[in-house]
């Protein structure tokens, strides 16, 4: 169904490179900034665990925080409410299946990253790192992906194996480094 024009790609690349040569002298109007000054925004967590902060949290800690700050939208014990459920999910067989943490998410680190940057929806960035670890542990424990007493921290979280980790095919392997 699809073919690829190598010639077109080469022409585009050549044009892009020559355009860059023309701008070799650039304004340099960015100001140097230190890691300490970036720290409050430096919240990316990658699958290998890089970016995870110090701290730790257990499912039991998470359950208390969840009841206070999350259950209004996601329902008691992650069973779903105004917004999606956080627990359960049948294996995916159809294209319009419900994607859940247990049946779809490939990396546990995404859970920490997303909670910390976006949740709770009405008050993002209001949770401490300890609270984010605890909520991550609670949700993973509800899904029986970790034990109910397992603490999550920078060492343990990247090691959690998600059931659907190998369920993906890279769409454009020729364009993805």
């Amino acid at each position: 169904m699809y073919t690829r024009s190598l010639l077109g790609f080469a022409v585009t690349l050549t044009l892009a490179l020559s355009a860059r040569v023309a701008f070799a002298q650039t304004p340099n109007l960015g100001k140097p900034i230190s890691p300490a000054d970036i720290a409050a925004w430096d919240i990316n967590v990658l699958p290998d665990g890089s970016g995870l902060p110090p701290g730790s949290g257990t499912p039991a800690d998470g359950a208390r925080i969840y009841a206070a700050k999350c259950s209004a939208c996601h329902g008691p014990e992650g069973k779903g409410g105004v917004n999606g459920r956080l627990v359960g999910g049948d294996p995916i067989k159809i294209i319009d299946a419900e994607k859940t943490i247990a049946n779809f998410w490939p990396f546990a680190t995404t859970l920490f990253d997303y909670i910390r940057r976006a949740m709770p929806w009405p008050k993002p960035r209001s949770l401490t790192n300890e609270e984010v670890y605890a909520l991550t542990a609670y949700i993973l424990s509800l899904n029986k992906l970790i034990g109910e007493n397992d603490a999550m921290n920078a060492q343990t979280l990247p090691k959690v194996r998600m059931p659907n980790q190998d369920g993906f095919i890279v769409r454009f392997p020729d364009r993805t480094p």
Binding site: P47, I95, F104, T110, D113, Y114, G167, I169, R171
Partner: peptide
């Protein structure tokens, strides 16, 4: 490497018949 953020790890990963899903459907 990629961050595997919520939107690329979960949302914009369309499921194919049979249950596998495409990752990095950029274009």
């Amino acid at each position: 490497g990629p961050g595997m953020t919520f939107y690329e790890a979960r949302t914009y990963a369309p499921v194919l018949p049979g249950g596998k899903a495409y990752r990095f459907y950029f274009i």
